[in-house]
């Protein structure tokens, strides 16, 4: 298309000139070569741009493929961590239950006071029974009568030899790591890979 336009212009030019300057009928044609040089430059620019786009496309494609591998790796890491969290959650469920707390308190010799007293701070007056707690608890704390299967065989924190049922500890691999590990050097980390 552009070459058509280029040739059309020099043809129309002479037809206009004779009207303004009729005395000069002949003149030198403009050199078309002068116009050809920028065309080559444009071509080079266009080809370079095309190559650049192709190159960028390839780089982007490689990068997105690369990141999809990265994504897959992170996904599997996420999955692994989710599993670890689940294992830890499983170990912890039941430990926050009132049954476990009561059994641990009972192992320390604690009781529920039948007739509590209150100290009023404003005037130092003791309200209520004004007696020390007896050794007998208002309700039994030790035996787990409100059943909880999750912690039935879990050793007590305050008495690792006993479980909530009052039995001797039944050593199983799943319950061993329930007793807390003393923190010596920062927070303990899980050694899994």
């Amino acid at each position: 298309m552009s070459s058509q336009a280029a040739t059309a212009r020099p043809l129309s030019a002479p037809s206009g000139r004779p009207q303004s300057r009729p005395e000069r009928r002949l003149r030198a044609l403009e050199l078309p070569a002068f116009r050809r040089r920028p065309r080559l430059l444009y071509g080079l620019v266009a080809v370079a741009a095309a190559l650049g786009i192709v190159g960028a496309q390839m780089v982007l494609s490689v990068m997105s493929t690369q990141s999809s591998y990265e994504l897959a790796r992170l996904n599997s890491q996420h999955h692994e961590l989710t599993l670890q969290k689940q294992v830890l959650d499983d170990e912890l469920t039941g430990l926050s239950s009132p049954q476990y707390l009561a059994a641990n308190a009972s192992a320390l010799g604690m009781v529920v006071d039948k007739t509590p007293s209150y100290l009023r701070l404003s005037d130092g007056k003791i309200l209520g029974a004004q007696k020390a707690a007896s050794s007998k608890s208002a309700i039994t704390l030790g035996k787990g009568s409100v059943a909880n299967e999750l912690i039935a065989d879990t050793p007590l924190v305050t008495d690792p030899e006993a479980t909530i049922q009052g039995d001797e500890k039944q050593t199983t691999s799943t319950t061993e790591n329930v007793t807390p590990v003393p923190v010596t050097d920062g927070l303990p980390t899980v050694r899994t890979h």
Partner: peptide, 8 residues
């Protein structure tokens, strides 16, 4: 389903 507090 797990019931952390058992029979509570």
């Amino acid at each position: 389903r797990t019931y952390p507090n058992g029979a509570v």
